[in-house]
Design a protein around this nucleic acid. Structure first.
Lengths: 238, 238
DNA sequence: ACTACGGTTGAATCCTGAA
DNA sequence: GTTCAGGATTCAACCGTAG
């Protein structure tokens, strides 16, 4: 049974939709070549349980979740692009699958969070960045100015966070502005807190988000409803 | 025939030495466990010939040059560390060899150059960073404060550059301050323009540099002679 | 408008004990 | 044996509040 919200976004009658579902199954509702950018923060396969293991583990986080990639390639139009967040320990687990799905990898993007985290405090540099693969299907062109591959953006303050790995809106709007034009369609098959969809709607794009976790979907839908009108309010580091 | 300059640095009679030679052969002059940090920017195997292919190719740059790693491990003391510059396209070619040589990889460091370079201007984010593996032998501890894994430092302006892949002194002094104490010994088996040795001497460490390329060695020795006394003069981005 | 101070936090990691 | 859940540890940078 196709979701009418997804049909509405595809037809342009609606800006954003977030649905609970399995992107490998329910994502088939999205026709071939209709999406302009896939922007996703998939489970890294590190069994992350939040700071001090306070939250339950993410779903699908037992192994690097790469299986959405062929579907991402299918729904993208030629000239479309993929941004796939990663972590330095597992980035290689994603590189080959991205290529095998048909993409051409163009960049390793760096999200600079501005200050460090935990880890082995005595013998490890404080982790202050995350990485994202930028890959393209066919002949891609930036719609505007050429962006740089380091993106400085502050993390979301914990109290305003509804998800343990939530990306800041300013980071997402920055990326969305760089790779898409207004009214274009963005798809996030593992949308978590919904930052991609919220940022896409806030910048005048259309977006579809999907996630296995019903709780996260509920929170993301609430967020979309209330933050969609507001512009991204996070501050860039620069 | 052992170099007397290297003996002098090992004995503490001299602060820095740069010699022309093959680190796989001439590096054997350095005894086991005498070095506190190996800091190196090896040939990446990308047949780099400078911007616009203006310079001749680097020596040993036909394949990622990983063969110095067992020697690096041998000369390091337990608790010593390795910083090996890399590039995102080939970083995986270095990760396994670093581990196979006996090191434990602790970080992927990001050098943020502050502004972008060239590349495919229409479909690739402007490259603004380089990466470096940080790895340790045995039980390493930072001698001072815990540093972060993103290092913002401006590139050397092309006109002040004597080598096509020259690293800024401020970046090198930052790294050297983070992982070594004054008077400790640093070894760079592919020293190129000699930034590592110059920065080490400028921060009160001792250093040995080696390089195959006689022209680069001559330039680096000149640089060591004239810049050694001066402190690092480059500006950090922050 | 500042500075000073104390509490909070981080896609972390190690360890223990239960299932 | 194995896997999973929870507690302890860590420290530089951030936040909020007080002065």
């Amino acid at each position: 049974m196709p979701s009418s919200e997804i049909s509405d976004v595809l037809a342009g009658r609606r800006r954003g939709a977030i649905m609970q579902g399995d992107c490998l199954v329910d994502g088939r509702q999205i026709p071939d070549g209709t999406v302009d950018a896939v922007i996703v923060d998939p489970p890294f396969g590190i069994r992350y349980r939040g700071q001090n293991n306070r939250q339950r583990a993410l779903l699908n986080d037992e192994q690097p979740f790469v299986w959405f990639l062929p579907e991402a390639y299918r729904v993208l139009r030629p000239g479309g692009s993929l941004i796939c967040f990663c972590q330095w320990r597992v980035m290689e687990d994603f590189r080959r699958p991205i290529q095998l799905a048909g993409f051409r990898i163009m960049n390793c993007l760096i999200w600079d969070k501005g200050h460090g985290g935990m880890g082995h405090t005595g013998c490890q540099f404080a982790p202050r960045h995350e990485v994202a693969w930028f890959a393209i299907k066919g002949r891609f062109r930036f719609p505007g100015r050429r962006p740089a591959d380091v993106l400085p953006h502050r993390i979301v303050p914990p109290k305003r966070r509804i998800h343990s790995t939530q990306k800041p809106l300013s980071l997402m709007t920055d990326l969305i502005d760089s790779v898409t034009k207004p009214d274009e369609l963005i798809y996030d098959p593992c949308c978590g807190s919904g930052s991609t969809v919220v940022a896409a709607v806030a910048t005048g794009r259309r977006a579809i988000g999907m996630d296995l976790d019903a709780e996260h979907v509920a929170a993301a839908r609430h967020r979309l409803k209330h933050e969609a009108a507001n512009k991204a309010s996070d501050q860039s580091v620069e």
